[in-house]
């Protein structure tokens, strides 16, 4: 790990301003991903701004009947919140499918959205990776790509976003609230928050320099049956090969977001119109334009079959 100076920020705006002043600064909250990457010298901040004291750890109702989740609410506390369990069960289910009990106790709402890919070529500093070292190439494309992206990828990068929580946030139409270095607040719809790799895979979201996430808001509950199904190589504590978050209403309409397939939570609103016609009908427009590798083309079938599993679960859970 490289040496770094350390400060505890006094206010969210002061944290953002401090980060904007120092291009080598990073925010630290739970630290579960950042410290992992700092030990490997993939992340090399010269200065850490500890945001844990900023009192952004409340879950509140919003005037429109929705919910505001503070950026520092820990994954355990969000999953266990009585209102989340009752009114946004997809969010609880997605959170509980991720990581371990220890990690969920530390990991925060904002940090979960900002976690980096677990692509093994990003983690191995001896390998070419356009995300870690822009312009160096992508060793994953000719390598073991079984876990990696099948859609929305580019010739520069086939990494996936690893978050389960973000899949639920995408299906629930969450909004990311931020404060910018000059103190102004901004709201970013979750659909516009994460970016596709294109030829700049080192850019993973639309935050600007120094901008700090303060909260994630959810619109008022949409009801319906909410299910999250994660397919992985072991039954606990593993990243998804494919995951499906589903909200389905009594009339058969609904929403689907998919994890483990792209650089961002994958949702195609036009495909959701096919939900009453079943998994196959949804999968076709949902995965249109997919460019899998030989190693991960099975994910296309796996998405369709996982969707079929959750749809039949939704039908049987009357």
């Amino acid at each position: 790990m490289r040496p770094f100076s350390y400060e505890q920020a006094a206010t969210p705006a002061a944290a953002a301003a401090a980060a904007a002043r120092n291009p080598d600064a990073k925010f630290i909250a739970g630290g579960t991903n950042l410290l992992d990457l700092m030990k490997l010298e993939i992340e090399k901040p010269a200065h850490l701004i500890d945001v844990n004291g900023l009192a952004l750890d409340k879950i509140e109702s919003t005037p429109d009947g929705g919910m505001r989740i503070g950026a520092l609410v820990r994954n355990t506390d969000l999953a266990a919140d009585a209102r989340v369990r009752r009114e946004y069960p997809l969010l609880s289910r997605a959170l509980l499918a991720g990581a371990s009990g220890q990690l969920r106790n530390s990991a925060t709402t904002a940090g979960n959205l900002l976690q980096r890919t677990r692509c093994p070529y990003f983690y191995d500093t001896n390998q070419a990776c356009n995300k870690r070292d822009p312009g160096s190439g992508c060793a994953a494309m000719q390598g073991f790509s079984r876990q990696l992206a099948v859609i929305g990828s580019s010739n520069s990068c086939i990494a996936t976003h690893p978050s389960d929580m973000a899949i639920a946030m995408r299906a629930l139409d969450a909004t990311v609230e931020t404060v910018q270095p000059e103190g102004a607040a901004r709201k970013i719809p979750i659909a516009d928050f994460h970016t596709l790799p294109g030829d700049t895979p080192h850019i993973e979201n639309t935050l600007t320099r120094g901008e700090l996430i303060t909260a994630v808001t959810l619109p008022k509950p949409v009801g319906g049956k909410q299910l999250y199904h994660k397919v992985r190589d072991r039954s606990s504590y593993a990243f998804a090969l494919v995951s499906v978050g589903l909200i389905v209403q009594p009339d058969g309409t609904g929403r689907v977001a998919v994890g483990g397939v792209a650089h961002k939570p994958w949702r195609v609103e036009a495909a959701e119109a096919e939900l009453p016609r079943g998994a196959k009908a949804v999968a076709k427009p949902l995965l249109a334009g997919a460019k899998p590798t030989h190693d991960n083309e099975f994910k296309l079938t796996l998405v369709e079959r996982t969707l079929e599993v959750v749809l039949s679960e939704a039908r049987s859970a009357a």
């Binding site: 350390y6 630290g31 579960t32 410290l35 500890d50 844990n52 220890q102 990690l103 530390s106």
Partner: peptide, 13 residues
Amino acid sequence: GRRTNSCLTLAVM
């Protein structure tokens, strides 16, 4: 009282 991986957090925090 909450279980935590002590390797993934800084003492100063």
